[in-house]
């Protein structure tokens, strides 16, 4: 084993070398900007690119289909909020009430987000009560006025069943709206719409699962 003195001497030399190296690197980096590169296809080299060109997302834009999706989903969510508003006075099942509260918080907040999104793009914000008007075409999965009346008139176990069945159908409609969006040329390309539509799909599928299990439990 080397004597401690030799070891210390070696460390000192190494430190000097390291310090000198660090100084050189600092000097070199201080003058040069860090490289900004545009990657290429697999096997192709990356190449230097300017900041303006690198950040130019002008070709990835929302489309009319994205706008229609957001507008349609506001009305769709609005009905879900109307449905859950019936729960506290009609259901005594804790899990149903909890589910309703979650849908209420989530969908009201998502409606805000969709309104803001449309607003920022100077697009028309639909009246969330538009589906109550005569002759309005309902978005997929939405309950008809007759179905809503039947739900509102029900209580207890009958209400829980109608509510869960209705909300499963309602959610399934939202999922089909997402599928239609992604099947449309150019739609769902912007990161916001992609993420939101994917979230709607994932969240509502999961809630369908949960509601299905709940329905099964209640039927026992």
């Amino acid at each position: 084993m080397a004597s401690p003195i030799v070891v210390r001497y070696r460390i000192a030399v190494l430190l000097l070398i390291a310090a000198a190296g660090a100084a050189c690197r600092t000097a070199a980096v201080a003058d040069a900007r860090p490289p900004l590169l545009q990657a290429g296809a697999p096997g192709q080299p990356s190449r230097a690119v300017g900041a303006m060109q690198a950040s130019d997302l002008s070709q990835v834009q929302y489309t009319g289909a994205d706008i229609k999706f957001m507008q349609g989903m506001i009305g769709h969510h609005a009905q879900a909020v109307e449905m859950v508003a019936l729960v506290p006075s009609r259901s005594s099942v804790d899990d149903v009430r909890k589910l309703a509260l979650r849908i209420d918080v989530s969908q009201k907040d998502e409606m805000n987000m969709m309104r803001e999104w449309l607003q920022a793009r100077s697009q028309q914000i639909p009246d969330p009560r538009a589906h109550h008007m005569m002759g309005t075409t309902l978005m997929p999965g939405m309950l008809t006025p007759e179905e809503m009346e039947r739900l509102a008139a029900a209580t207890g176990a009958e209400f829980d069943r109608l509510f869960l069945e209705g909300m499963i159908k309602h959610h399934a409609g939202a999922i089909s709206m997402v599928a239609e969006l992604f099947a449309t040329a150019g739609a769902g390309q912007t990161p916001e719409i992609f993420s939101y539509a994917s979230d709607v799909d994932a969240d509502q599928r999961m809630e369908i699962d949960r509601m299905g299990s709940l329905l099964k439990e209640l039927q026992k």
């Binding site: 399934a172 599928r205 509601m211």
Partner: peptide, 19 residues
């Protein structure tokens, strides 16, 4: 998993939690 989704009317063909 979560085969509950099978029981709702109109959802028999529904794909549920799958990812």
């Amino acid at each position: 998993l979560n085969k509950g989704g099978d029981s709702g009317p109109g959802t028999q063909k529904m794909s549920v939690t799958n990812q």
